[in-house]
Amino acid sequence: MSQTTIPPKPDLEPENMPLQPGRSSSPVSVGASSSLGDFVQETTGLTRRLFIQLQRRPTTLVAGVIQPLMWLVLFGALFQNVPQGLFGESQNYGQFLGAGVIVFTAFGGALNAGLPVMFDREFGFLNRLLVAPLVSRFSIVLASAIFITTMSLIQTAAIVATSAFLGAGLPDPIGIALVTAIVLLLVLGVTALSLGLAFSLPGHIELIAVIFVTNLPLLFASTALVPLSFMPRWLQVVASLNPLSYAIEPIRYLYLHSDWSFASVVMQAPWGAVTLGIALLVLVGFAGASLVAIQPVLRRRLA
């Protein structure tokens, strides 16, 4: 190592020694500010770290935006010549596919949410967070969720804009707000599950394996690429149990109908009609159940 590693002689002048241990002054932050303020401060710090990473390594976001657009353009072109009306009320396959790509992209991003956390565990960076007097270690989870959600919204905006450009049209403003809410609910639920896995699996190899075997099967067993009516009975059952379908079908419906209501039927499951309101409730239930399901893991690892 070079000479330069020797620190310059530290200044020992008393007035320049603000690093006196806190024997006289009370330790930091005890009673200095509210717990809520502290929680916001630690969550902001952790979130900021993720966004600095994104800013310096934008590859993930760039690829995350390009990939769904390729889906739209290439996969859409693949079935361009199918007879009109085959895919329900959609005018063309591109229009049909838009909702599937929005949901599938958000889902994929959220599924990967646990990876950075897993790497922090493996590299010992998590220990740095765990020896700190965090008000609640939920801030670690919350920071990841905020980051992933933002990423998903950027991706969704890109897809919505591109599909509009490709002729799929746009839902009305409240419809767009509802699309956003649907994406957020799904992302929240899946992010929670991924973070739960990141804290319970032994390493990143295992986590990647789980992501790998979850990703595509859940896509194919949903209504992202074809309507339920195309599927054999057993797959209809599976797809009607898949939370992705409950995000895809409402979005698809919102795209095609400006006169929607919560009672509008968006999907014909084998056991009956699913309305927009019910689909939303299913998503709320999914997100809630995921958050509850990971609590024991988080408590064990982060207690």
């Binding site: 930091v28 932050s29 200095a32 500010s33 502290d38 401060q41 630690e42 902001t44 710090g45 952790l46 900021r48 770290r49 740095r128 967070l129 700190a132 007097p133 965090l134 008000v135």
Partner: peptide, 11 residues
Amino acid sequence: LELQASLYHLP
């Protein structure tokens, strides 16, 4: 260090 400061709630 800024991250560390927020984790220890420095004013």
